[in-house]
């Protein structure tokens, strides 16, 4: 940290209601996790957007690299047998 009055960045994830996963909504600054939660409540749930909050220090997130996009994700594209439409079932059977 370059300056001692600079608070670190946290990524904020909110569950809008039970039954739905936490979703990334943005980031904010806070000195510690406790305040990050409170800040997230004040910044990102002013209009009752959430019932549960996760905060994660941004520096703790490891992201895949965009230039690895092809080796990471392209191989899945030709595995059509993983999708239901790959298999032919007579119409008479109905939905399966």
């Amino acid at each position: 940290m370059s300056k001692n009055d600079n608070w670190k960045i946290w990524e904020v994830f909110i569950r809008s209601k039970n039954g739905i996963s936490h979703k990334h909504v943005g980031s904010l600054h806070a000195p510690d996790a406790e305040m990050a939660i409170k800040n997230a409540r004040d910044v990102y749930t002013r209009r009752s957007e959430g019932i549960s909050i996760w905060v994660v220090p941004s520096e703790s997130i490891t992201a895949s690299r965009p230039d690895e996009k092809e080796p990471l994700f392209a191989p899945a594209d030709d595995k059509v047998y993983r999708h239901p439409t790959f298999y032919e079932i007579p119409d008479e059977i109905g939905h399966m």
């Binding site: 940290m1 001692n4 009055d5 600079n6 608070w7 000195p31 510690d32 305040m35």
Partner: peptide
């Protein structure tokens, strides 16, 4: 606000 931001960081560090 500087002393406030500094204090909050200092406290966080102590807690850690």
């Amino acid at each position: 606000g500087k002393w406030v931001r500094e204090a909050a960081n200092a406290y966080a560090e102590k807690q850690r």
